[in-house]
Design a protein around this nucleic acid. Structure first.
Lengths: 336, 336
DNA sequence: TGTTAAACTGAAAGTGCTTTCAGAAACCGC
DNA sequence: GCGGTTTCTGAAAGCACTTTCAGTTTAACA
């Protein structure tokens, strides 16, 4: 039978070291305010008892949690994961914990938005790729819940965005320069859920615009709007590539969907990039693995930045809001 | 200027509805124990004030947090992400929050293991792919920190493992059946970090064993031990494929590394599967995208199971420990 | 050696809930 | 209309720290 004794409290330490509990607390939180010999005595007692303050008691007393939350849809999709990597790396340096709230419905989101700022379960919030009503934004900022939005913006909250239209332009310019004349677009133009944002449309807009300016066209039949899922993306790709006069270049709204196009091309024995150029969007890790040309949106960086801004505002709430526009960059690999 | 008033407490609700705070608490936590008319009055007050109990106060009083933690290395690697997906799906059903502790060093791990059970910051812990000393396991169980290990096991804690050797056997059997006679293995045989586990060796063992039993050999030069990184995996693949008499089949210890092999094959203009068969391990999402034959280890399922076992034990601590061995399955696609 | 400032410490209030316990009120069958 | 249940409610005791405030000790200096 294991000892099964209660873990020690600050009172036990106080008793053992012969000082008051306030002093124990000070040793832990403001060591320079306590006499070095007292300090040593207390530390000995702490070590001896293996005392560690209980997180909840601490949180209650200091009114903070050392924890930040991330609200996100599709949190296991590669592009989101890479943002998490950035977030985590910034947080671990600062000794903050990371809690994830996966969102899979509008209600879900509403519930979190209305309860999180009042529960005060976390010190700050990062909201990824979700649109936020004015009401909700106000609620967050009125309740002093520090927030950073990614891929969406609101004047009352910090935000990090990219210029999706410009991304589409970059893709078009590149393909034109490569000599292509017939193009197609594949992406999830209808937003997957009402609560999610829809940057895809903007990417298409930029793409079309540059084509038009070059006197080239993108016929309706060459725009395939299909959901993010593998099955449907492949279906869309198949349709495009089975057209009587198929496009020689396809721009997809995400790298993952580009993978589907590549797969279909392989099955149809279409040579990439000789017979078909493919360009994706995101630059997720696997893009390099499969040598996919893509528009890089610095996913890691966006997560890291979001966390850093958040931490800065938490420790210094007067600091002005930040609205950052992250640059995009075309990365040429082997599919164009 | 926003109102900037303090969020309401249970006392405000009590005052407004003319009952004591105990009753408010009961309305929230044991509604059936309170008169339906009182209940209604209280609910009105709650709605009117938009009252939401503070999570930390609640946590302190009830001694639980409704939060579980996951300790994991490489948390953005696809195989880990997929386990998270399983974990998250089980947790969200039960209204538990998910906090992630990325581990990137031995000290890191030690720090968490010794503080987590005493801080009582979470109600339960999932530890992925990390080896745990006897000391640490005892510490967790003695302090009543419910824990589930994944990819590692210890008699005092719940665990979910797979039979890595069997995975290697499956791969070998399949390749032999396909008519191959010269094989290679590529994987991170030297564990990447001391704190991490090393299932790769077992996969190789099983692989070799079946080859031997079939009278086939796996020469030293055909075993490439290279770290998980893209660069080094490619290097390893390049060496294998540049041998005077290169293998016609490669088994890699992970899907990600299989991708690297595929990339090198593409660059060398080696036809897959005609000139070279490739088989991976894990069955991550992209495996299907790139049509990779692989050993499926049901990653989502392992995460889901871990979370379910954890929740079950938390709500019913007497329940016996579980040690689960998840079956493996070969999934044939286009690379063999 | 006395005065004053600086350094240190303990008592106590605060943090916002849950839960036990005991008493009051309502109900029930006879 | 009376004892005995049952149902409901409020008072009060946790939960385990942090932080303020005031008092005491020590140090510094003339």
């Amino acid at each position: 039978m294991p000892p099964e004794k209660k873990p020690p409290t600050i009172y036990d330490v106080a008793r053992l070291s012969g000082v008051s509990i306030s002093t124990i607390s000070r040793v832990l939180n403001a060591p320079d305010k306590v006499n070095s010999i007292t300090h040593k005595r207390v530390m000995n007692a702490i070590d001896q008892l293996e005392f560690i303050p209980r997180a909840d008691a601490r949180a209650r007393a200091r009114q903070n949690t050392n924890r930040i939350g991330v609200l996100t849809p599709f949190f296991t999709a590669p592009s989101f994961v890479q943002r998490f990597r950035g977030v985590a790396s910034a947080l671990s340096k600062a000794n903050y914990e990371l809690v994830i709230y996966p969102i899979d419905s509008m209600d879900h989101l509403q519930g979190y938005i209305s309860s999180i700022p009042l529960m005060r379960n976390i010190d700050g919030l990062i909201i990824m790729s979700l649109s936020l009503g004015d009401q909700d934004a106000r609620r967050l900022s009125n309740n002093d819940m520090e927030t950073v939005l990614i891929e969406y913006s609101h004047p009352r909250l910090n935000s990090i965005v990219i210029d999706d239209e410009h991304g589409g332009q970059l893709a078009a310019e590149h393909l034109i320069k490569q000599g292509h004349r017939t193009f197609a677009f594949l992406g999830d133009i209808e937003p997957p859920e009402k609560f999610s944002i829809h940057p895809v449309r903007s990417r298409l807009t930029g793409f079309k615009q540059v084509l038009q300016e070059a006197g080239l066209s993108l016929p309706k039949a060459h725009i395939s709007s299909c959901p993010y899922t593998q099955e449907e993306s492949r279906q869309g790709a198949l349709e495009l590539l089975s057209l009587p006069k198929p496009p020689t270049a396809i721009f997809t709204a995400s790298d993952i969907q580009a993978l589907s196009v590549m797969k279909v091309a392989r099955q149809l024995n279409i040579k990439v990039p000789d017979d078909l150029a493919i360009i994706g969007f995101d630059d997720i890790d696997v893009a390099e693995h499969v040598d996919l040309t893509t528009i890089c949106q610095h996913l890691d960086e966006s997560g890291r930045l979001a966390a850093e801004i958040l931490l800065a505002r938490i420790s210094e709430p007067k600091r002005p809001l930040q609205h950052i526009n992250l640059p995009l960059k075309l990365i040429k690999r082997m599919t164009t």
